[in-house]
Design a protein around this nucleic acid. Sequence first.
DNA 1: AAACCGGGGCG
DNA 2: CGCCCAGGTTT
Length: 357
Amino acid sequence: MSAAPDTFAQRLLDWFDHSGRHDLPWQHPRTPYRVWLGEIMLQQTQVKTVMPYFERFVGVFPTLPDLAKASLDEVLAQWSGLGYYARARNLHLAARRCVELHGGDLPRDYDALLALPGIGRSTAGAILAQAWGDRFAILDGNVKRVLTRFHGIAGWPNAPVVEKELWAFAQAHLPGTPLSPSRMADYTQAQMDFGATLCTRQNPACMLCVLHSDCVALNEGRVEELPTSRPGKPLPERAALILLAENPAGEILLQRRPPTGIWASLWSLPEAETHEQARAWFSTHLQGDYDHAEALAEIPHTFTHYRLRMHPLRWRTLAARDAVRDNDDLRWVAPTDLVSLGLPAPIRKLLGGLLEK
DNA sequence: AAACCGGGGCG
DNA sequence: CGCCCAGGTTT
């Protein structure tokens, strides 16, 4: 006897045909480069936000070799405002590796994709399935939510043991009979669309759900409690002084952050932990009176792992010491040029608020 | 304020 | 592997 057919994929495909998204820019044309770029941009950002950035980005860098040829600063300028700048750095580095190692194309090979920076299991599968129609599973946040509910799986989805189980189900749901490449791509998009628009975190549209008859969470009344949320833990706190120096031309002194740690390699305002440190930095780089600072309102910023309370100090019409010129790590930037730099979101917000006045 | 999230990196 | 880190938006 044969097992009952798993119609999970077929039902999602049917749903996709009438309710999925068919007009996403990376679907037309669905080339490996465009699919990759779309996947990276979508990693922590919603479709609506991504669309204009995607169009602009492929306008400036139409092909992978174009991207590889560009400087990192040019890439970051196009990324500016999207956030999560590590994605842009990885994208740029991966493009250069593709030129070195793969003739300027993305490799059509799971392990080779996985070896590229910024591409993990899910993104590698999504690229192969969408660009080539190859039979690979994905497991992004949307799919995790759908599968935890459909199979009634408790436990935080990112816990290793749960995630392993979810991958197994994602594999098991791959269509048993081969789909055409274009339908395999549709199935992949269907899973993401389904989670994003129907099986949403709150108020999922179970009445309209094509899987509802077999959904364990729905049948057991556990839709609201799945997926299990992350186990909580108290956040440590850290404070920092943020130095905002303006010269007579109204330019702002920016410093490039170190290549590791928070906001790696991004331009930001100089930062110090204590007034002693801040004063020392001030006296080696600037002429003026440290104690003349105007203290601006505290900026609270919460990361997943700690809370950062930033205390900005502002000086106007300062001059730099002669030794301090624009260099690789320090530069005066006009307010109008700030938009073209990848600034950390809270710093961008602080400076943006200042300039409006 | 808290939840969310796919990948990097380290032991 | 298993575990923690890193950001910035959504809710």
